[in-house]
Amino acid sequence: MSEEVDPDVCYNLTYFKDFMKGYRKIDDNIMLRMNTTNTHSVENCTQFFKELADAYSKREKIINHCLKILDQGLERKQKALDEDPYDSNLKNQMFVDESKRRMIYNEYTVEDIVRDRSLTVFKNKCRMFHLPQEFVDFINRKR
Rank of each mutant, 00 (worst) to 15 (best):
T46V: 02
P7E: 10
E134A: 10
Y56T: 09
D137F: 02
N12D: 15
S88I: 11
M94P: 06
S41K: 05
M128T: 15
F129S: 01
T46E: 11
P85H: 03
Y15C: 10
T46I: 01
F48T: 01
N92R: 12
K125Q: 08
D28A: 13
T37Y: 05
D18P: 00
S118A: 14
D8G: 05
D54S: 14
N89S: 11
D137Q: 13
F49D: 02
A80D: 09
I104A: 00
E107V: 03
K21L: 09
M34V: 14
N89P: 00
E107Y: 13
F48Q: 05
K91N: 06
Y56W: 07
E51D: 13
C66N: 05
R24V: 00
M94E: 04
Q72W: 07
N92Q: 12
D137P: 01
V110H: 06
T109Q: 09
V96Y: 10
L74R: 05
K77D: 14
R127C: 04
D112C: 11
M31T: 15
R101L: 06
E4P: 02
I139S: 00
E60I: 15
P85N: 07
F138N: 02
K17Y: 04
F19V: 01
F122K: 01
E111I: 02
T39H: 03
L52R: 01
D27N: 12
K25M: 10
T109F: 13
F129R: 03
Q133T: 14
D87H: 00
D18R: 14
V121F: 08
F122D: 00
N106K: 11
D97N: 12
N12R: 09
K61E: 12
I113G: 00
M20L: 08
N64P: 01
D71V: 03
H40T: 12
T36S: 15
A53K: 09
N35A: 06
N124V: 03
L74A: 03
P132C: 04
L67V: 14
P85K: 05
K21W: 04
D27K: 04
D54T: 15
D87G: 03
R117H: 11
D18M: 10
F135I: 13
D28V: 10
I113Q: 07
T37G: 07
K91Q: 14
S118E: 04
K68G: 12
